[in-house]
Design a protein around this nucleic acid. Sequence first.
DNA 1: ATAATCACCTGCTCGC
DNA 2: TGCGAGCAGGTGATTA
Length: 272
Amino acid sequence: MPELPEVETTKRGIEPWLKGATIEQVVVRQPQLRWPVVNEIQQLQGQVIQGLQRRAKYILVATDAGTAIWHLGMSGSLRLVEPNEDTRLHDHIDWQLSNGKILRYHDPRRFGALLWLPAGQAWQDSEYLAHLGPEPLSDAFDGDYLYQRSRGKKQAVKTFVMDGKVVVGAGNIYANEALFLAGIRPTTAAGRISRVRYQRLAEHIKQVLAAAIEQGGTTLRDFVGGDGQPGYFAQQLYVYGRGGKPCRQCSQTLTEIRLGQRSTVYCQSCQR
DNA sequence: ATAATCACCTGCTCGC
DNA sequence: TGCGAGCAGGTGATTA
């Protein structure tokens, strides 16, 4: 489920129930995730949650003892459940909260993670976060930045913008969409795209992510009781998942290829 | 250094 | 109906 808009929506959805609550118990049923859940994670017990932050697709939970860092991987989800709700297959971690709720982590593919950063180390310096590129919705990210970073690169522009060291949050769906909206063919070498075209691309990356975050707020607002499964606003996608179907702008059949092992869809007429 | 590929893991869909 | 192949929203490690 999680691209950046889904992670942001998750963060916003759970924050009201987490902030100010005490973590009474941490239950780890399956520690073998992307990285093993360390025993030190138990230091969360008894801690008051000071607040939540998102950096890239990571959700940071701050306490006086340290910071817990969630990553949802490809199939992870976090939601609040009532204490009497039975656990299901792949419900790997629970946080029992002082307000009676349980924060429950579910992740069939186990590509996600729960990391522990002891107090005293700034999370920006964490080995998992230090190398990350700018946030796409920040002022640090714009067309000039993409232009400068891409000079001399022969890599396809799509894999370039999906590289978290360049910019975070441009996952496969939104990279496909932003490239369509910017009229740029995903296979074009990153180093051969003009400044002006990168300015358009950066704007569309911002726009498509912001719009999805806005929708996420309405589509999966209910993190208590609901099943927490978001949609991808499929009705609004121009290219992702639409290979072989007609372009919504010009009706030409959309082309689907694989780029860096990821499904890539574009319009040969609208994207040059 | 750069760019492409592999690997982690389960579940679902598709074609035979 | 069953079964293998291929694919899925991420990203660090490994290979050319």
